[in-house]
Design a binder for these strands. Structure first.
Lengths: 226, 226
DNA sequence: ACCTGAACACCGTTCAAGT
DNA sequence: ACCTGAACACCGTTCAAGT
């Protein structure tokens, strides 16, 4: 029997898993960055404090020195993912419509890159990054001619639209087999849901195109082209 | 940020809460109806199998004879709340626009009566009641002149819009004090978010009016008035 | 100031039994 | 066929300590 040399085949939990380069010390930034990684990999339910600590090479309870509780981890991970580096000065460029599209499509793309963030955003407090986006949106619309009394409603209309489209898209991002299975189950009920089956509700959905088209319609209504 | 605290000053678990009239036997209907009650009272996180069993006057494990697991309770409670008793034959009435508005506003109202259902719907399978609504929606739009190639996109546009508006509304239904606190925190940052503060983003929001207005714009785009 | 393990109060669900 | 309690494998968090 050969003595185990290098922990390659270890059975034990082995807490001290060869901190070869010695993990850097815990910090709020490192915790949040790792939480985002974990959320991306395992989804909302996959974020467990113990698992997060494991990834950080620390004991589970060490996190609580930097963070009040799990909810705060969610809040910080969420806002960290919503930063907008877009051309915030272009807001007074002549093409306000393009500026709105740019920010909203970037917002949607950010959430789709981290699908857990879409379902999380509506139920958490608004962090600075998302507030920054809303501020930018409001200022563009305002400069485009939306009067003050309608501004609140216009902002929320667009928020609602983006959130609905993104949450749906993020959650219906099924595997092809799932979609096929769903459609087959539907087809089996084609006399109960004839229109839906004809429309191929779960197939051939051009999510991006649908998003842009609806956004166009909404903007036409909110800021009539003159 | 205020932690959600359950203000009810319960003293004891009180298992055997005087089954005065002897609870009726367990049944799927009774389980689902009680689950809806519990969800209405305590929210998504408030639904625990043990608590549900308590309300039913049964042991926790008895539920598992009628139900596979907690997820199934969610699925069934969700669809049970989305039934549409609306005038399904009126779909070929001359006023298709009114028919769409009626169904979508009723859908939104149903979800707002059970706020947990809004956040749940996008992540669960589509039950018969919601499929029925989509079928009705598709058939009305089709008769209103939306051609087959655009039907899928039109249905999803409206779905996205309704879900976004409702999820947001359901989750931002803050107490007056919360809203005031939020706005005050914002006001404190009025040089960072001047537009948002001016628009009174968190106050004076006519959710129902915003919903109807945006829906009008969307329908104008999807089915141009001739 | 920062990190830790033991321990507590849960929660969903399995299992082996009861009627 | 229907219901049950004991028990298991978790999970967030408190606490009393360690450095």
């Amino acid at each position: 029997m050969v003595a185990k040399r290098d922990g390659t085949q270890d059975k034990r939990p082995q807490r001290q898993a060869a901190p070869s380069v010695q993990d850097p010390p815990l910090s709020l930034e490192r915790i949040i960055a790792t939480a985002v990684e974990l959320l991306d990999a395992e989804g909302l339910d996959g974020l467990k404090m113990r698992r997060l600590a494991d990834r950080l090479g620390s004991g589970a309870m060490s996190l609580y020195w930097h963070v009040a509780n799990k909810e705060q981890v969610f809040d910080l991970a969420l806002d960290s993912v919503l930063e907008y580096r877009g051309p915030s000065q272009i807001s007074d460029s002549p093409d306000w419509r393009q500026a709105v599209f740019h920010m909203l499509e970037d917002w949607r793309a950010s959430m789709l890159r981290h699908p857990w963030s879409a379902s999380l955003l509506p139920r958490r407090a608004l962090g600075p990054n998302i507030l920054g986006r809303l501020e930018l949106l409001g200022s563009i619309l305002s400069r485009a001619g939306v009067n003050e009394a309608d501004l609140n409603g216009a902002i929320w209309s667009l928020w609602n639209y983006v959130m609905g489209a993104t949450i749906t898209r993020a959650n219906f991002d099924l595997s092809d087999e799932d979609m096929l299975a769903g459609q087959q189950r539907l087809a089996h009920l084609s006399q109960e849901y004839p229109t839906i089956v004809r429309a191929r509700l779960l197939l051939d959905n051009d999510w991006d195109g649908v998003f842009r088209k609806g956004l166009d319609f909404l903007l036409d209504g909110l800021v009539p082209r003159q």
